[in-house]
Write a protein that binds this DNA or RNA. Structure first.
Length: 582
DNA sequence: GTAGGGTTAG
């Protein structure tokens, strides 16, 4: 094993304290290489090798040493080290280091300041990022295109889409700086991530008519977002456009399209795309292969997923923690939970550390396969593995407990979240509400609705779906309908699932005319009923023994090309049998 | 000789 350079540094430091080594540079010899004068330890311009830094403590240690060194390392060395800390995602640590630099008079330039702006942005404090603009001027520097690009990214990260767009326009109109391809990518990516894919698409086409030429990354971003928004055909069109304009798609572009095709079962086109990639000499990498593993797993085709893993290993492309986590999901989905466990257990032997996502996946697998105790055991292991819980881990475990009917345990776990500095999100509350509604604790569920609103977590359409479903199942269809009707005032548009719940309940309660009206209304709002809608309605009507109505719905269902499911069919058969007996 | 950028997962 390679001896850690930092261990050497540490040993050297201890020796220095004992006074056995005198030169401040000599104990850092494995990190410092003299530029052109061989290994003279007192060379005034040491080149520092930062690549051996893997722990933030080591970086901070080296940083403090650099502050003490005379002559002082250059601003470039400080900038590089700060960036190492940023790459470790230790933004707060980087900011503290910067403060220490200022206090001890270390050199600072626009590069350093840009890193500081970036750290504030990544900590979701774009306001502090803007405040750094003052430091620029104080130090005699001007914010440049990197500064403004970083601030735009910061605004997007803080969901300040309008402000981000404004800042970008200001750059152009006030000529604060010339936007470059990173700026354009940042704006386009921000719009996509904020859910404004079509705006991004239009902007991309607009840029293409100007001198600001979007590059392959920008095209890929929009293509990926189109695929995620189910507009795979638009994505394919854009792929053709970029090729037309002479911009070669790369592995990322193809991977996005591949995922889009797989997600919508367009296997044949996916296969053709892979052929096209090979033709273009683009080698499939671990991400591409993982996308294929994921696609097969989602279809429950774990054997095929295993084959993909086999193929990639044959090509010396080694599955990473994401690949294996995907496989854990696949095995969980098809109920092969022991295999899922084996995957997790095998990871350390392959030199891979399971992530919190790997653990969450297996916890989810245990829960979905009715093994809540095992899930709980694994959940408790998380801190001992040096991993931090996240909201999803909690949400998964909560879901497991509530599904198993263990409301009290679920509520206890929910209250425990803050001890890990985790803030419940809308999924957490939805899980809680659903658990309570399933136990017909509707009042309790509504009190949590108020708690979430107080905590600033906005209920979404799922939240109301859960409550409306709960009310319907509890026979409170009138209240459910009122709540349903209040949704537009809250800025929420009912989706197919929600319409299905309410229309199905109306059928079951015998309010057939009202159900029919809502069916018309839902179509008017651009929401088409699906096979589930009809099945639920028919089943409700049959339970009410409204046969003629049920048959009318069945006819309509057939007319639209849907087929009744097995429950609907057997209810009809029971019905006919009953009629025959009479 | 330094800073800002696109794809995979629960």
């Amino acid at each position: 094993m390679r001896v850690s350079t930092m261990a050497v540094i540490r040993r050297g430091f201890a020796a220095n304290k004992r006074g056995t080594v005198t030169s401040p540079l000599s104990f850092l010899s494995s990190s410092f290489h003299n530029l052109s004068h061989g290994n003279r330890p007192s060379s005034p311009k040491p080149r520092i090798d930062f690549s051996c830094l893997h722990e933030v403590d080591d970086a901070v240690f080296l940083f403090r040493e650099m502050l003490r060194m005379r002559p002082q390392p250059s601003v470039v060395q400080f900038t590089k080290l700060l960036n190492v800390v940023v790459k470790m995602k230790q933004y707060g640590v980087a900011l503290n280091a910067f403060d220490e630099m200022r206090q001890s008079g270390a050199p600072v330039n626009e590069y350093t300041l840009n890193i500081v702006v970036n750290c504030h942005c990544l900590l979701n404090r774009v306001d502090f990022g803007f405040a750094v603009l003052g430091s620029f001027f104080k130090c005699g520097y001007k914010p440049d295109v990197t500064t403004f690009t970083t601030l735009i990214k910061g605004l997007f990260l803080g969901d300040k889409v309008v402000e981000a767009e404004k800042l970008f326009k200001k750059l152009m109109t006030l000529k604060l700086c010339e936007p470059n391809e990173v700026t354009i990518l940042t704006v386009i990516n921000g719009l996509c991530k904020a859910g404004h894919t079509l705006t991004a698409y239009d902007l991309l086409r607009l840029f293409d008519k100007t001198s600001f030429k979007p590059n392959v990354k920008t095209y890929s971003t929009v293509i990926d977002s189109l695929c995620k928004d189910r507009m795979v055909d638009y994505a394919l069109q854009l792929l053709a456009t970029m090729i037309d304009k002479g911009i070669s798609p790369d592995i990322v572009t193809y991977s996005s399209i591949l995922r889009g095709l797989c997600n919508f079962g367009r296997w044949k086109e996916a296969k053709n795309l892979i052929t096209e990639m090979v033709d273009h000499k683009i080698c499939l990498d671990v991400v591409t292969f993982s996308i294929l593993v994921d696609a097969f797993c989602k279809e429950g085709l774990v054997k095929e997923a295993e084959d993909v893993v086999e193929i990639m290993m044959q090509r010396n492309i080694f599955p990473n923690d994401v690949t294996y986590t995907t496989l854990i999901d696949g095995y969980s989905l098809v109920g092969q939970i022991d295999k899922a466990r084996k995957v997790l257990d095998s990871m350390p032997g392959k030199g891979l550390k399971p992530s919190i996502i790997s653990y969450s996946s297996l916890i989810n697998g245990y829960c979905k396969n009715g093994k809540v105790e095992e899930a709980w055991g694994l959940f408790l292991e998380v801190p001992h593995k040096g991993l931090d819980y996240n909201v999803v881990t909690y949400n998964t475990m909560l879901q497991g407990l509530f599904c198993a009917g263990r409301c009290a345990d679920g509520l206890k776990l929910f209250k425990d979240m803050h001890t890990h500095q985790l803030i419940p999100d809308v999924v957490t509350y939805n899980t809680l509400l659903n658990g309570l509604c399933m136990k017909k604790q509707i009042d309790e569920a509504f009190s949590f609705l108020h708690i979430m609103e107080e905590q600033g977590v906005n209920p979404d359409i799922t939240t109301y779906g859960i409550l409306i479903h709960g009310l319907c199942k509890d026979g409170k269809v009138e209240i459910a309908r009122d709540l349903f009707n209040s949704l537009p005032c809250k800025g929420l548009r009912p989706n197919v699932q929600l319409y299905t719940i309410i229309i199905g309940s109306l059928c079951q309660e015998g309010h057939v005319e009202e159900a029919k009206c809502l069916l018309v209304e839902m179509e008017k709002s651009g929401c088409s009923p699906n096979s589930v809608t009809y099945n639920v309605c028919i089943q409700g009507l049959l339970k009410r023994k409204l046969f003629a109505e049920a048959k009318a719905f069945l006819n309509e269902m057939h007319r639209r090309g849907f087929s009744p499911d097995s429950t609907t069919v057997s209810l009809f058969l029971d019905q006919q049998q009953e009629e025959g007996l009479r």
